[in-house]
Design a protein around this nucleic acid. Structure first.
Lengths: 224, 224
DNA sequence: GGCGTAAATTTTGTATACATAATACAAATA
DNA sequence: TATTTGTATTATGTATACAAAATTTACGCC
């Protein structure tokens, strides 16, 4: 039983995050949001100064990001924001396509009706933003849909891996989707997915999902 | 053109590894080889002393291992060797099964005949050790077979993810396979895989591979 | 003797200082 | 002028020192 006066996860709970975790989060955002361009050298002195922390937690944070694949550290030559090659990105999308296709199958087997209703709701809100062509909130709900679908598999390793890939691809995928036709196609695939999902047709859902993510390649392939 | 006197990647090139990388490698081995039991607290002072390094590179190494999922760091309470629950292990095997099944399909499409010959050779050597029931070298070649098969996909993201999962499961899987019947079954699956591989039958190979790794669950499920 | 509290000890987190390697720059040589 | 070599500067890697938190121990109290 929970004896705490304060509800867990509320804004009152003092979340004690170490400095290096905060720094890692911060740099991760800077990279994902594009404030730190791929290939850029990470200027330790400058960032340390800007963030107001010492080098120790900063460097620990860098090691975390390196393990996550967002940053590359060359001994004695500093850290750079990892620059993904075409092949890297294709690899990641190809893998993500399979992972989420798998997730789709599992969800059809394992999720409760309430879970599916939640996804449906997410989908509807997303479509609301498509209707008025509001790109940013659409994009965010889209990400959330994929995250949530994966979460419902209950497979922690899958959830972690999908999350990592999604994070790494985040910026790149946001750059895509600016062509109205491609956006419409993407929306169409989402409609197909919802249909399959409601019937718990795992094979169909998996197939659409894989196609959906492989198509994502076409939507970003020319942007670099 | 390459004017260098020394061939790149030759044994002459001095590879310089930082301390924290060496430490990370060392601790990783200690965990995988079982010298550091899951759940054990990682005694910073003692290990730092033993390894003869200062706390800074040691702690950076810990952060790397944490990102890899081998270690858990709780703020102000130190690091522990991650203890995998039944669910964790099942999750990882379930995912690995799908990943390698995917790898299998890709290899049938993309690998050269020489690549396949290499796998065949690996397989034969493995079977040689099975014939004399020499468990350790069999196990090592087995790992190498799965690694090599994945490598031949050319999908770097897949290679990385498979490697990480395999590393985390290494110790656990070595514990299994002691029952002669289960070992025999595993060997049978490998024979099936080679047959499918030689015909480049991606679907068949993928199916056997997935079954093979899901069966691995049964081989370890009772050991903890 | 058990329990709760407070001091002492240990452990962890962060900052700083020092050592070493890489880069940039300038002078010297061909 | 181009290239090389030595030197200064800067950046990175590692060790140590200090601060804050958690854990353990000791003590007083019921």
């Amino acid at each position: 039983m929970n004896d705490s006066v304060i509800a867990p996860g509320s804004t009152f709970t003092i979340r004690k995050e170490t400095l290096h975790d905060q720094v890692a989060d911060r740099i991760r955002d800077l990279i994902i949001e594009g404030h730190l361009e791929p290939g850029t050298r990470i200027d330790e002195a400058r960032l340390v100064e800007q963030l107001g922390v010492s080098r120790t937690p900063f460097r620990e944070a860098l090691r975390t990001l390196a393990a996550e694949g967002l940053v590359v550290i060359r001994p004695s030559r500093g850290a750079h924001v990892r620059k993904l090659s075409r092949e890297d990105i294709f690899s990641m999308l190809e893998l993500l396509a399979r992972l989420e296709s798998f997730a789709a199958e599992l969800v059809c087997k394992r999720a409760t009706d309430a879970d599916l209703a939640g996804l449906s709701d997410l989908h509807d809100r997303m479509m609301g933003f498509y209707a008025i062509r509001d790109r940013m909130p659409y994009y965010k709900l889209n990400q959330e849909f994929h995250t949530q679908l994966t979460a419902l598999t209950g497979n922690s390793a899958l959830i972690e891996t999908q999350g990592n890939l999604q994070a790494r691809l985040k910026r790149i995928r946001f750059m895509g989707n600016r062509n109205p036709d491609l956006w419409a196609a993407s929306v169409g695939e989402h409609e197909e997915m919802m249909a399959a999902l409601m019937q718990r047709d795992g094979n169909a859902l998996g197939a659409v999902m894989e196609r959906h993510l492989l198509n994502a390649w076409d939507r970003v392939a020319d942007t670099f």
